[in-house]
Design a protein around this nucleic acid. Structure first.
Lengths: 163, 163
DNA sequence: TATTGTTATACTCTATAACTATA
DNA sequence: TATAGTTATAGAGTATAACAATA
């Protein structure tokens, strides 16, 4: 058995996974209630907002960690609701530029305050500032480690089980 | 804005959610590879193992946090693979007792060592013992807080948005 | 040839509602 | 009446492979 496996480690792992799931469930409901968006859809819009409101499909797919086909599916829904637009890129005509519309920004604005309040209540509710600081530090390190894998949009290049 | 929202808090939240997702993705692949089970299916079997190998459907659904209908779907798959059995309860003939078979135990045994190794590597890899202790403490507290909601198997009783 | 994005398709998972049987 | 479980069904999300267009 590799070292690192302890009762406390197991407790941390189980709690981490369950907290992630429960929190996601709460957040999903809030997204749906306040903005009629699914979890993924919110993330797509939020990621656009974080990148000046425009990104290429592939970059957006990598950012939100989805396959390009999966993003095309979500993008067509969001486009139908006029929360984003899609148009060919001027520099590279293969590429599609996704752009957040004003309606998309409004939708985010309708969701974000409640989202912040929810997380503040559910997650930070009973935690001290030093707890939060430790969590941020520790989890950021783990995330960096976990990210050491190729993005999914080029997953077809992997060599495992080509079948 | 509610207090509790800080840059560090946001960092902790985003990292928490992403770590949960990435870790789940890695773990899912390992379950599939080493035992041909999905994430949920593993959890169903593992939850049974944690309860002397037998539980009623409803209790199993609550334990794994799924609707009864969803569990019936998974149970029929697991039963077909002979990893569990289902039979009516003797005390309450409405109830179904789910029982882990030897094959089910073997399947778990084929998965668990790799699972432990994976988590030890991916999650605990670069964390100190005190980091882990803090995580266990903090996240257990949050989990307790988040669990303050009725289990999903009786979700039909809620009074919000009866529609 | 490689890359971008879309389409077609199939599959997994989940939830709702209707139903049966038992308490 | 209420509870346990199943079934039917519908919907969301994801992945794979094949494809067209462009680099």
């Amino acid at each position: 058995m590799p070292d690192g496996y302890t009762e406390e480690g197991a407790a941390a792992y189980f709690a981490l996974m369950e907290v992630g799931e429960l929190l996601k469930h709460h957040v999903e409901q809030q997204f749906r209630r306040d903005g009629g968006l699914s979890y993924v859809q919110f993330r797509v819009l939020a990621h656009l907002l974080d990148h000046d409101g425009r990104l290429r499909m592939t970059d957006l797919a990598d950012g939100v960690v989805y396959s390009r086909a999966g993003l095309t599916y979500q993008a067509s829904i969001l486009e139908k609701e006029e929360l984003i637009t899609r148009r060919p890129s001027a520099e590279d005509e293969r590429a599609t530029i996704v752009e957040l519309t004003n309606l998309g920004r409004e939708r985010l604005a309708a969701i974000i305050p409640g989202h912040v309040a929810l997380v503040a209540h559910e997650l930070f509710g009973q935690l001290s500032e030093s707890d939060i600081a430790t969590m941020a530090d520790v989890l950021t390190r783990v995330r960096t480690h976990l990210r050491t894998v190729p993005p999914r949009s080029i997953a077809s290049r992997r060599k495992t089980r080509p079948k």
